[in-house]
Amino acid sequence: MASSNGETLIKLDGIKKVFLTDEVETHALSEIHLNINEGDYVAIAGPSGCGKTTLLSIIGLLDTPSAGSYTLAGESVANLTPAQQAYVRNRQIGFIFQAFNLIGDLTVFENVELPLTYRKMPTAERRERVMEALERVGMAHRTKHYPSQLSGGQQQRVAVARAIAGKPAILLADEPTGNLDSKNGGAVMDLLKELHKDGSTICMVTHDPRYAEHADREVHLFDGQVVQDN
């Protein structure tokens, strides 16, 4: 287990995830114990199908574990209702997806603004946060563009801006370079590094060892178990 720089933000104890399909049980995660502290930059690596994305989904409250306990910022998330989970996701977690997942009918500005609208934040403050995030990723000049008018690299930068606009406790990135060429992939990794340098806590899933090395700590999964954490 890596050393902590700050308070424990995420604490997973004995997390298991079992998928039941017809009469077959698939153990996606087995006995995962993992702590992530504030300010950490953790890369979760491993081969395809090892349970990386399942683990990230549980950390991001998109999925629930079959067993084990999960504490986020000192609070257990075991008994949260779907609405409470949505509330926590909105305020504590920022997502960056492999496929960017920008909404095609919304402009760049509106995409970044989206999580803030669910907070019922005043318009002026919302606008300030959105512009700040877009400036941070160098996309402030494209506010009125639609995602389809941007390159893949630009789209991912906008996705990063959307993730950081709400100033979440942790950024969860699922293969953030997976759909990008090496040049744009490198640029996104540089951006994440900068965010981390400025104090963001990042948990990134990747199967590419080159990108895993960007993190301060690498957690390797194999067949749903942590086989290495350094």
Partner: peptide, 16 residues
Amino acid sequence: YRELAVRGALGAAKTD
């Protein structure tokens, strides 16, 4: 689906 899932991931409640 994906748009709605993204909205959900970003904190949209079912009523939203």
